[in-house]
Each structure stands twice: as structure tokens, then as C-alpha cells.
Design a protein around this nucleic acid. Structure first.
Lengths: 333, 333
DNA sequence: CTGAAAGCGCTTACAG
DNA sequence: CTGAAAGCGCTTACAG
């Protein structure tokens, strides 16, 4: 046997039919006599032949695959989002291919049109803003493009009202005495990624000031996205400002770090430290963290459903779907 | 302008050259007169033309993309592994496309040959065992296939000695008085995924029994992969067995849950509970968790390097590269 | 340096 | 039901 990969032509010869017939049994739709079909199938099984996916697509077949571009993997947020997307896609026999933007260079790579991201039936961009991503202001694709955890008037967008989320947190924390603090992720201003943390800060600030409070610059802690960032921030806060304090941890991971550090410092959650997180990840229940719920899986499912509709040819106006976050009160505040 | 996507033919006509010449400037390798090149480039820019990736590949181009099949996203382990892979791939202008196996159905999907996973230049399988995955016992691909966090004599494999990891943990914990416990993930026996936790259990058991100790069935806790599993297990252990206890948390996430629960129960780590984790994730340092270090990023980098070599035509014998885990002693034991 | 042509591995009307 | 043929959008020797 030669080393080269088998082609449809080989299978045709081997089973004594034409290339077209092999293609028909491969695709299973059109009418092929059972007998012929069996004959071809037998050869396929015996030889282990498999068609080249890209050749099929060159010839006009669908890929049944959706590109998902996302800033990272490894966080609960994206794991839940992808889970929601996968769930719905799967039901319609589509599947996601993930392209994480793990480095700055990958961002310029994304702007090249001849990259496999654009190779599939549709594209879901997570937490990205096309207007800022592309110099021309628009996205390089003739396929349906949809935004999750991101907003643009020009694209289907599924997102959550982060300002409101911050506001709800603030509105709850101001009921306690003591100063207000916030810890959030450093975000590039008007960079390619959506600035959800900045929105949460804005909403929080609004709530605090509305009640006559204030949020001085040194009550705002910006860090990278990690548990230890929460620990660090708490240490700083307690050292400089004493107790009690109220802290809005703009993601649950920070809240976790804060609780850890509080334990080490022997501080009491709720007494010394009032804490509100963000995301309502599964483990926050057990830890008694009061948090802002955002329907992450549902956003994913909604996005996938809309994408599927677009793929079926739905040409209706751009949809912007905004979910409302909710305060989930538990022990920590 | 018509609605259909521009083709290379359109660009050729528009710039008054042949299709071949457009292709040459697109690929940038062969000699094209600067003048001609500029002319074509201008048309490309003006029209926003981009070539179809799959058509290029049908005609023989490489994809510069590697499929990564992995059981989940959202854990530190896979985030670090992918980071390592991406790093090296990126240096050689290749990129990873991620295909998480989020459901059982996706596993049977994976066995279909006409699926985009097999569409790229190479395939890296994470934590999967081809012999068990495929009925025929071998993998359906004519491209290079490589295993990370998995082992097979028939495929390039990059993995860590999990038995040794468990042994090191046991060897350290037996120095303390009190009974030994282990918490690990439920794994399907001889399922498609590699059973790393079972290996860690075996190593641990060996160390414990070697020193004359024992590990009764009710000292073994099997759960899903979550922080709260650690909490649950600790509650059970303390309730039934009193203090002090020694616990091998076969992943750091369990250790985190244990520390959380210990705090809530008012138990002292190291005094009441001696704890060894697994993975040495970044945040374990801050928490003072004694843990088993495995070089996750390095495994990723090594895998990517080897894959790149295979793509360059390296036909040398199958490589099995086994990394040794190390005990990192901190406060928790 | 560049055009005309053959070829990549498929699919899908079009006939019969 | 099935073969022969045209076509998908590219690339790449082959000439000149």
C-alpha cells in the first residue's frame, strides 16, 4: 500500500462504482440502492478511508462548526459560557472550535483574513469589541458574527448589564457602616476587550455616591485576575483603613482570596468585612458569599440559538439582548 | 456589488493579471515584480478580499494549526497546559484550535473521521487514551498524533509519573501521627480518559503500607472535581475519625476546599490537619499548601516542540517522555 | 517575472 | 438509482 492518503477516487475504483456514488453514500442523503451502499461501505470500513473535510467544504459542504474566540480559558466564567454555547450547538449537530487569544500577537493574527477562525460557518466573539479590534472598524467576515459578553450596535450582542451589577452591589453595601472599597481587574482603556470591570466600578460608584458616600482613588484596587489579588488587596485595606470595611469584589475569585486572607488574619466575614462578589459561581453558595448573579450559561445558550438562526438564513435586524444581573444575598454581607 | 464572496478570480480581473499572479502575491514567496505586487495589493485592500482557507488547503497549503482535544476547559491544569503548548507553537507560527470534549456524545463525534479535528496539520490529545477511545485500538488520522498527560507505547507521549507523585505525598504524610486519608476524582475504569487519580492513589497506598500503615476503603473519598468536594470530604473525615488527620488531596482544588472548611470548623491546618495537594498551582504558595509539583507548562512546551519536529518530517521512533513530580514542602504538612 | 493549464479532493445538478 | 462532467477556490510546476 502506498503512503499517500486514500481519496474518494480510490474508494470508487475499489468498489466498482463512480466517484459520485461514493460521495452519495458518504453524505447519506440521496437515494442509493441498499446493495450498492453496502458494497461501498464495506470498502470504506476495510480501508479506513475518511474524506478530507476541507475538500468537502471547497466543494460546497457546511462545516457545522462555529469558531469561538475568547480571551482566555481556565476561568469559571468562560467555562460556563462555553458550556452554555456547546449545549445548544450540540442539539443542532454543530460544534464549537475554540481559539483563545493568549497573547497580544494572537490579536494581530486574528486580523489576518486567512486564518482558520474564519474557516467555519459562524464566529462568536467573547468579550471582544470589533470596532476597537479592527482598524477599519468592522469585522473581516462574510459569515455570521455574534458577540457574547460584549456589545456593539452593529452586531448581534448578548451581554449583561454590568453597570447595574455594580450598582446592586453598591446599593447593598452602603447599608453597612464603614468605608467602601472595590477590587477590580486592570483593563486597557478602549482596548480590544470589553471593559466589564470598569462598568461595574461605575455602577458601584453611582450607588455609593447616591447615598452620600464617596469612593476615593485609594479605595479602588486594580490587579490582575487571580485569587491572590484579593488577598493582597485585603491586606492593604486593613492595614491602612482599620475595620470594619465593605468590599465589592468584582469577581468571585477576588472574594475567595479575600476570605482566605481574612481567615489568615483572623478577621470575621460580615462583622469585620462585608463582602459582595460577582458571578455567582457554584462554590460561592457553600462559602456563603453574597454575590451578583449573572446568567452565564444562559447567555451562552442564547448566543448559540441566535447563531443557529442566523445560519438558517435569518436576516432580521441586529439583536441586542441584555440580561439583568441580580443580587444574591448570603452570609458575607 | 453582488452578494457572493469575492474569489481570487475577481481580484485577478480587477487588477488585470492572472489568477496565478494573485496567488503568488498572496503567498509572498515567489518573485513578483514590485509594481505588479503593489497593483494587486491595492485591489485586495480596496475590496477587502480574503482567500478561503479551506480552498487553499485543498490545493495543498498547510494550515499551520494544531487540533487540541481536551476533556474540559476551566481548570488551572488545562489552562497551564495550553499556555505551554501555545507558547512554543506560537514561536513557529503555528496555532492551536481547541476541541473540548464536554459531553459523552462529543466522544462518539470524535470517532467520526469527517470532523474538523482531523482537518489540521497535527493533533494533540490531552488526557485521552487512543487504545480505549477507538474500537479498532488506533487513532483515525494520517497526521501526527501526540499525547499529553497520557501514555501509549504507540504514540509520542508526554506525561508525568503520577504513581510517584502519590508515593511522594504518602511518604511525606506518614511521618505524622494519625490516620491517612485521600480524596480523589471518580474515574471511569478503562474509559477513554487516562486515570491519573487512580495512579496517584496507588502510589500513595504503596507509601503508606510500606511504612506499616494502612488505607482502609472508608479512608478513600471519591468525588467530582470541585472545591466543595474537598469541604465535604473534610466534614466527613472529622466527624467519623476525630483529629488529627493526614489528607492527601490529589489536586490542589480539593486542598483549597479543605482549607476553607477547616477555617469554618475552626480547625488548624498542620496541627489538626496535615495536608498535601497536587499540581503546585500558583495560588498554593500564598496559601502555604504543601503540594506535589508537576511541570505542567513544560509538558505543554515539550509536546509542542515534538509536534513541530514531527511536522517537519521527523520520522524517528516514538518518543515517550516522562516527567518526575516533586514534593514542595510548605506550611500545611 | 507571469500566463495558461493541470491539479487538489470533494459535491451536485444533469442526463439517462 | 447512477455515471460523466462541471464546478468549488485555490496552488504550483511548466513554459516562455
Amino acid at each position: 500500500m502506498s503512503d499517500r492518503r486514500l481519496t474518494i477516487e480510490d474508494i470508487a475504483k475499489l468498489s466498482g462504482v463512480s466517484r459520485g456514488t461514493v460521495s452519495r453514500v458518504l453524505n447519506g442523503n440521496s437515494n442509493v440502492k441498499t446493495e450498492t451502499k453496502e458494497k461501498v461501505l464495506k470498502v470504506i470500513r476495510r480501508t479506513g478511508y475518511s474524506p478530507q473535510v476541507y475538500a468537502r467544504r471547497t466543494a460546497g459542504a457546511k462545516s457545522y462548526t462555529i469558531s469561538i474566540v475568547l480571551p482566555m480559558i481556565g476561568t469559571d466564567f468562560y467555562a460556563r459560557l462555553i458550556k452554555g454555547i456547546e449545549e445548544k450547538l450540540h442539539a443542532e449537530w454543530h460544534i464549537p472550535a475554540l481559539f483563545p487569544i493568549l497573547s497580544r500577537e494572537r490579536l494581530v493574527w486574528l486580523m489576518k483574513p486567512d486564518v482558520p477562525v474564519y474557516d467555519y460557518d459562524g464566529i462568536i466573539l467573547c468579550s471582544l469589541v470589533p470596532e476597537r479590534l479592527f482598524p477599519a472598524g468592522y469585522f473581516l467576515s462574510d459569515k455570521p458574527v455574534l458577540l457574547v459578553d460584549g456589545f456593539s450596535p452593529s452586531y448581534d450582542s448578548i451581554y449583561v448589564d454590568n453597570f447595574l451589577g455594580g450598582y446592586l452591589a453598591g446599593n447593598h453595601l452602603v447599608k453597612y457602616d464603614g468605608p467602601q472599597f472595590i477590587i477590580l481587574m486592570k483593563e486597557e482603556k478602549r482596548g480590544p476587550f470589553i471593559e466589564v470591570f470598569t462598568d461595574r466600578l461605575s455602577g458601584f460608584t453611582r450607588a455609593v455616591t447616591e447615598k452620600g458616600g464617596s469612593l476615593p482613588q485609594d479605595h479602588i484596587f486594580r490587579h490582575d485576575l487571580s485569587m491572590s489579588a484579593g488577598s493582597l488587596a485585603l491586606r492593604d485595606i486593613v492595614q491602612k483603613h482599620g475595620l470594619p470595611v465593605n468590599i465589592f469584589a468584582t469577581c468571585d475569585l477576588y472574594a475567595l482570596g479575600i476570605i482566605e486572607e481574612a481567615n489568615r488574619l483572623g478577621l470575621r466575614i460580615r462583622k469585620d468585612i462585608r463582602l459582595v462578589g460577582f458571578d455567582d459561581h457554584e462554590w460561592t453558595g457553600e462559602l456563603g458569599i453574597t454575590t451578583i448573579h449573572q446568567p452565564i450559561e444562559e447567555m451562552g445558550r442564547t448566543a448559540a440559538e441566535l447563531m443557529l438562526k442566523r445560519l438558517q438564513g435569518d436576516k432580521s435586524a441586529v439583536r441586542n439582548i441584555c440580561f439583568k444581573p441580580e443580587l444574591v444575598i448570603r452570609d458575607s454581607a
